[in-house]
């Protein structure tokens, strides 16, 4: 398959009829035949069993699936945090599975942003220093206008001189989002960004993520197990047993729940055969 060809809509195989992206957008990230195997022999675990997926630019996509479905692994491999066993994962036109550690580090620094479940701010730096960290690492100039836009959008104006220990969980995660966006990356990966937050802060963070896509034109891929969180996304990709198992466009919590229920029934049906 030509990795540079735009992913045509509806080309997914019969097992996952909804895979693929709307055809009018160019894919920011796409994977072809991606597999990831942990361990060997008896202990072999197939975390990803041949994933073909496209994530369109300027879109907020959620990856969902039950525990062990491979959703975190998919994100790690797509982001260049983990290596693939076979297949390829593209960020734009770069196959991240072929890069060495230094190139991956540069790729993460310049082209990818991360938002973590436990915020992962550096405790010795202020909010502002944390936000600017990726630019400093790259030795890049700070785009003051962009910084101000982010700070205003995320409501961090009063908090810039505070250290993480002086911020609430929601505020810390907003700082983390600003850090992820400061270098204007091609894509931001968010791993359970609301996992450590109460529901009000969680809702706040999710709406900020959605605003960054809608108003600031960013691309966000978020892994979550929370249907409510997933409903903030433009599209939900469902994963099961290391394969794409569904695709919901413009999801509502109910639609996501229904999709997950369908997956569970599928698993229950598969279980005797798999056992």
């Amino acid at each position: 398959m030509d990795p540079f060809a735009p992913a045509p809509a509806g080309t997914a195989g019969p097992n996952h009829p909804h895979a693929g992206a709307p055809g009018h957008r160019e894919a920011a990230v796409h994977a072809r035949g991606l597999t990831k195997v942990y361990g060997r022999g008896e202990a072999e675990v197939r975390a990803l069993a041949g994933v073909d997926v496209d994530f369109a630019a300027g879109e907020f996509t959620a990856i969902m699936g039950p525990s062990g479905s491979g959703k975190s692994t998919l994100m790690h491999v797509l982001a260049g945090l983990d290596s693939a066993t076979s297949g390829s994962a593209f960020l734009g036109r770069t196959d991240v599975t072929t890069l060495d550690d230094d190139a991956l580090t540069r790729l993460r620094r310049d082209r990818v942003g991360f938002v973590f479940q436990s915020f992962n701010l550096l405790p010795m730096f202020t909010a502002e220093q944390n936000i600017l960290l990726p630019l400093e690492l790259a030795g890049a100039k700070v785009d003051r206008a962009w910084f101000d836009t982010l700070v205003t959008t995320l409501g961090l104006g009063q908090r810039l001189t505070h250290r993480p220990s002086e911020l609430s969980g929601g505020q810390q995660q907003r700082v983390a989002i600003a850090r992820a966006l400061i270098a204007k990356p091609e894509v931001v990966f968010a791993d359970e960004p609301t996992g450590n937050l109460d529901s009000r802060s969680g809702a706040e963070v999710l709406s900020f993520l959605r605003r960054s896509v809608r108003e600031l034109g960013r691309t966000i891929i978020m892994v979550t197990h929370d249907p409510t969180a997933a409903a903030y996304a433009d599209r939900v990709v469902l994963l099961a047993d290391g394969r794409i198992a569904g695709d919901i466009v413009d999801p509502t919590p109910e639609a996501v729940l229904a999709g997950l229920d369908a997956l569970r029934q599928l698993e229950v049906a598969d279980a005797p055969a798999g056992a």
Binding site: L81, D101, D102, T105, R106, R108, R109, D110, G113, F114, F116, S118, N120, L122, P123, L133, P134, L137, A138, R179
Partner: peptide, 16 residues
Amino acid sequence: RRESATLRAVGLTRRQ
């Protein structure tokens, strides 16, 4: 450990 990993994730090279 977590911090080092975060720094690596946001773009700190091994050498740095």
